[in-house]
Design a protein around this nucleic acid. Structure first.
Length: 273
DNA sequence: GCATCTACCCCATTATCGTT
DNA sequence: AACGATAATGGGGTAGATGC
């Protein structure tokens, strides 16, 4: 994180970064020891960088899938393909929306009951009595109405308790959604113009954005170097193995004419001018 | 305005690995 | 062995930035 805190004067401009990038690329080529024309060499490096970027992109997509997986109810250790994760997420959202609608309806129903109860205040009741005077027995009607409401209230309360217990059961059976830290992928927001950007003039978020972009570029190059190094290592190991075989006087005749690992690794580059 | 570069996205292909 | 899922890779398309 120290990387992001460097004072503006000490932060190299992207122009400078490009220069160092070229140096790194030059180093990469010499490191790989590949007999390439400069154009092909550059192309090769660009491809490595593109591959690294693509790898990172896929990783971010996968981390998104993992985040989704933690949010949908599923049993621990259950294997879910990406397609299954998407489908189940859609189903889960649909179910949640339905439940929300149902709860909202229930809520408004309860509100209506409350209003009716508070509405049947002594004052209003008295008025009703005056109006109904002589027509029948208002007290009995009022009692019936109250009984009905009471019954409905009890039913609703039972329904609510039932819902609650079902929900508790569901929560216990399915793992609680754990919010693992997800890989934060820089938003595809247009990056500020490289040459006009200094850390001084930008807000903290922009600083992090630009710095993280540079950091990512560096990471990409480092990954490319590591990739080429690993290829070299494999080639070296292969050569060592062959040397051992030769010194032991048990060299295989077909080994001499076979392609090297590097040949198969760089087919296009070595076969074309 | 145009050519070039770069980053990003998308797709097809291939390799690998686990499951049936 | 067949099959499905996934990762890696190569290559094309495109939008935005930049230099001329």
């Amino acid at each position: 994180m120290e990387y992001f805190m460097v004072p503006a004067q000490k932060v190299p401009s992207l122009q400078h970064f490009r220069k160092t990038e070229k140096e790194v690329i030059g180093g990469l080529c010499s490191l790989a020891n590949i007999p390439l024309t400069p154009r092909r060499r550059a192309r090769r490096i660009r491809r490595e960088i593109a591959n690294s970027n693509e790898r990172r992109r896929m990783q971010s997509i996968n981390s998104g899938f993992q985040s989704l997986k933690t949010l949908i109810p599923h049993s621990d250790g259950e294997k879910l393909s990406k397609a299954a994760i998407l489908q189940q997420t859609a189903e889960y959202i649909f179910a949640l929306e339905q439940e929300k609608t149902r709860l909202l309806q229930q809520n408004s129903q309860l509100k209506r009951f409350i209003q009716e109860f508070s509405g049947s205040s002594p004052k209003r009741r008295r008025g009703a009595e005056e109006k109904d005077e002589g027509i029948g027995s208002p007290d009995i009607l009022e009692e019936e109405k109250t009984d009905d409401l009471r019954r409905e209230m009890v039913e609703l309360r039972q329904q609510l308790d039932k819902e609650r217990s079902v929900r508790m059961m569901l929560e216990e059976s399915s793992p609680a959604p754990t919010h693992h830290p997800t890989v934060i992928v820089p938003a595809p927001a247009p990056a500020p113009p490289p040459h006009h950007v200094t850390v001084v003039t930008m807000g903290p978020a922009s600083v992090i954005n630009t710095a993280s972009t540079s950091r990512q570029n560096l990471d990409t190059i480092v990954q490319a170097i590591q990739h080429i190094e690993s290829i070299q290592e494999r080639v070296g190991e292969e050569e060592q193995r062959r040397a051992v075989i030769v010194t032991q006087g048990r060299a295989l005749t077909d080994t001499a004419g076979s392609d090297t690992a590097s040949d198969s690794e760089w087919p296009e580059d070595c076969s074309l001018p």
